[in-house]
Design a protein around this nucleic acid. Sequence first.
DNA 1: CCACTTAGAGTGAAGATGACTCTAAGTCCT
DNA 2: AGGACTTAGAGTCATCTTCACTCTAAGTGG
Lengths: 224, 224
Amino acid sequence: MTTTQVDQRVSLAVSTVIFALRPDPSTGRQTLWLPLVRRIREPYEGKWALPGGPLEAHEDLAASARHTLERTTGLGDSYLEQLYSFGAVDRSPDRVVSIVYWALVRPDEDARAIDGENVEWFVADDVPDLAFDHDDIVRYALDRLRAKITYSPIAHAFLADEFTLAELREVHEAVLRKSLDPANFRRQVLAGRTIEPTGTCLTGTSHRPPALYRAAARPEEIAR
Amino acid sequence: MTTTQVDQRVSLAVSTVIFALRPDPSTGRQTLWLPLVRRIREPYEGKWALPGGPLEAHEDLAASARHTLERTTGLGDSYLEQLYSFGAVDRSPDRVVSIVYWALVRPDEDARAIDGENVEWFVADDVPDLAFDHDDIVRYALDRLRAKITYSPIAHAFLADEFTLAELREVHEAVLRKSLDPANFRRQVLAGRTIEPTGTCLTGTSHRPPALYRAAARPEEIAR
DNA sequence: CCACTTAGAGTGAAGATGACTCTAAGTCCT
DNA sequence: AGGACTTAGAGTCATCTTCACTCTAAGTGG
């Protein structure tokens, strides 16, 4: 029962899948991107991994995820939600359980992003072979995001405070990777009462000015 | 930064919300019950708490939850799913993060249940004041169960291998605490293709014998 | 053999969904 | 100035789903 007491402890890490919408380099259309960190020590030295770190004794889980977000992108204010906890015995040479969050970064924040040490962004559906079980985690996060956007108003989290219906639709299209009918999308979203008109219109477009909307309730309040 | 190194470590526990359907003592209708364990040491000595324990270095998260199930009820084979991880700094005097699973116990299993040490069952919607943040956890589990049963075939997990549509409906009614139209329930469930007829009927009823069904796919495969 | 109970099929109104058309309100070009 | 162009946003209609309800089927118990 008692071999080496040192390696017997289970350690706890918090990792964060940070999603932002940026143009696809080939098609030019908006797609999901995420930042990865190159590992600078064993195990998996040289491989890409999700940003994260050990949970400090004085910080909450979400706070740890927020610190990771800050360290990786320089950003602070983003939607954050717990995704899942991964704890298979063999997922790492040393026993570590990872509690994974996801962050959805707004475009106005994303514009100010400054990559941290050894950080590089990748198209979320086309990441390289990752360290540990991080491939599984990214896939799981994508599945969940695509499922959740259809029944929950998280799409707001990818937008600034005020936005047009076209922008909201573009978020859905980018996440789901398919185009949606503008008229039907409008009807459905308005029926859901999750957004409300600000009363103003966006000006400066080369066509009819679209109305601006804001979120009627913060997405946090409409968790699953 | 460094005060007492001993208390600085974060420890990890796995707790399990074990749900079973049993008759309500007052109304006699099926309701959700769960077992709690009386704490025999500080903190919260004497209070009721969710069953669980520290994560052992050699066991997976789900395995730990399964051990808790075994220790608490004597049962082994039940549906098990990860619920959420709770890690607020102040949820316990010593810093502990709890990864919470839920188990759904089938009636044939439940009949064989043997309560462990200091274990007592309670109506899930009427639990006493619990230790730590376990009140929140129970509430969260109930919310999730009620939400999930409407779009996922987890209700099977509360039934034996073969069951009638009336039994499946009773599970839904017990969880949601409202009665459902038998005819519409039948149509919806059959349209979902999640169950298939065994070809046999249940006999011995004092009325028309109902057809028996089985799950078409294990609920595990239809996670969210 | 008739009353009673639950199984399971069917019906019609109301609501949601999806493909599509049409008008509104701007800018850009000539 | 005026027409072409673009996107906003309302409206139409057929189809599908949902829900409350009715009706017949098939057993048991008196």
